[in-house]
Structures are given as C-alpha cells and as structure tokens.
Simulated scan of single mutants.
Amino acid sequence: MASKTLGGCALAIGILASGIAAAADPEVAAPPLGASDWVVQVTPYLWASGMKGGVSPFERAPTAHVDVPFSEVWDNLNFGGFASIWARRDRFVFAGDLMYVNLSAAEVVGPLPDLAPELELGAELDTVQFYAAGLAGYRVVDTPQFSLDALAGGRFWYVSNDLTLQLQNVGSRSFEQSFSWFDPLIGARAFYNITDKLSVMGQADIGGFGVGSDLTWSLLGTVNYVFDDHWSASVGYKHLSVDYDEDGLLFDVEMSGPVIGVTYRFGGPAGG
C-alpha cells in the first residue's frame, strides 16, 4: 500500500518538473557595446519536460523511483506559469527565471488485505512548486557576430505537498510537507549571429556544492528568429539535473525536454 501511494506522490513531484526551466530565456541579439540604456527581454515559455530519478516528498518516506514522460505531466497539470527575463547595460548582464506550478495526482491504491480487504484506499497528492533563479554577469567577449557572458547567482526552490488518504466509507486523513533550498550557481552563456534574423544561443550552469543540493547543473540550447525590433521566437532543448537530499527529503532527478518561447524586447533595437 505504501509503495503505491508513494508512486502517486512521485508522479506528482515528477509533474512539477515540467515547470522547472532554469534561465530558459532565448536571447536575441543585443545592441552594440557603448549603448548606455538598459535593453530588456521578457519571455513567456513552455518546457515540455519529463523526469527520471528518485523522490521522497515526505520525511522518513521510502524513495519512489519515477520515469514520467511529458504526456503524464500534462494530464496532471492544474496551472502553470513560466516567464524569464534578460537584461543588459554595456557589458553588465542579468538573467532571471520564474515558475509557479500546481498539480494533482490521484490514485486508487487498492484493498487492505490485512486490515479491511473489502475496502479500498485512495490517495491524492496536490503539489505546489515555486522556482526563481537570478544570475548576474559580465560580457567578456562582445563582437557583432559573437558574444560570451560569465555568470554567477543562484536558484531558489520551494515545494509544498498535501497528501490525502481516503479509506472507503471510513474517512480520510491528510499529511502536509513543505521544503525549500537555495543553490549557488556559476555559468556561462554564448550567443552567435548566423544572419541578421537567425541566431543560436547556448547556456550552462553548475552549482549546489552542498549549500542546498549536493550538485545541480543545466544545459540549454536554442535557435532564435527575430521578426522585428521587438518580437522574436525561439525553440531548443533543455536538460537539468539536481541532487537534493536533506532531513529525509529527497529530490534527485534529471529533467529533459524541448523548450519554446516568444520574446518581447524593449529598450533597444534587435541586433547582436
């Protein structure tokens, strides 16, 4: 019974990962060095991610191993909001990312053969996750065709779980658990103009270092197309790995999937 209930918990935590998209802010080309005003880009996006790994969303609960495709993530999504921001002034840059996700997973665990074989036990897990990342940096290479930024900052995670166990014709009992942590990060971001409309961007970061998670790292690559001075679109792929294990709470997973975003830019013309 416990293993099946935790399987439902694991599924819900896996669904959370659909919202986890660190720094998924595809960059269009920045203005020439020497511009004194801020250039800002805001990108609502979707990360169609599945998840593999092990989770234990409640203290002292056994680890549940999960392998959740994005199709299951989507089926259990109540609400998700994702947005990123990128800003630059001269050689100073900033990248931020926000996510809020609410998911529910319900499962009929089955009868209790030793206690009440005629009754069925149901389990429902409601999960809320808030995620925020911020990295500041310096543009170490800046040419009309290629740029390279060095970045440092952190990623904050908050997860809240509400598990309800319902025994047929008997009653229900609820369990709540929330946990949070902060991971320091270092990273880099490269941008290359193929044409005045088409570009590619790659970003990588690594962190945790035992401050929050034991280790976390991510890779992001996008292809970007500029429509005009304000609008652009990007498609690409994202992978994120995190290994958090503290006080009996485990979140040791890898998340991968395509990303797609639409960017609005203000404060400067499009260009690299």
Results as ranks from 00 to 15, higher is better:
Gln41Glu: 10
Gly171Pro: 13
Val128Ile: 12
Pro31Asp: 06
Gly134Asp: 04
Pro258Gly: 04
Val140Phe: 08
Arg265Pro: 06
Ser71Leu: 05
Pro44Met: 02
Glu72Val: 02
Leu163Met: 15
Asp114Trp: 00
Pro144Ala: 02
Pro31Ile: 06
Gly53Trp: 03
Gln168Trp: 01
Thr222Arg: 10
Leu185Asp: 05
Ala10Ser: 12
Leu119Lys: 08
Ser178Gly: 11
Gly268Val: 07
Asp205Pro: 01
Gly207Ile: 01
Val28Ile: 08
Gly110Lys: 02
Asp214Ile: 02
Asp162Trp: 01
Asp196Thr: 11
Thr222Ile: 00
Met99Trp: 04
Tyr100Asp: 10
Thr216Ala: 15
Ala270Val: 05
Asp126Met: 04
Ser234His: 06
Glu27Lys: 08
Val170Trp: 00
Gly80Gln: 14
Met1Asp: 06
Gly202Phe: 01
Tyr237Met: 02
Ile20Gly: 05
Gly96Ser: 14
Phe79Ala: 14
Trp86Gln: 11
Asp229Leu: 01
Pro269Glu: 07
Ala123Leu: 07
Asp90Ala: 10
Leu151Trp: 07
Gln203Cys: 04
Leu165Asp: 06
Glu176Arg: 14
Gly122Glu: 12
Ala105Thr: 13
Leu119Glu: 04
Val108Asp: 12
Leu185Trp: 07
Asp245Phe: 05
Tyr45Ala: 06
Val108Trp: 07
Gln203Tyr: 11
Asp67Ile: 00
Ser178Met: 06
Asp183Pro: 11
Ala270Tyr: 03
Pro269Ala: 15
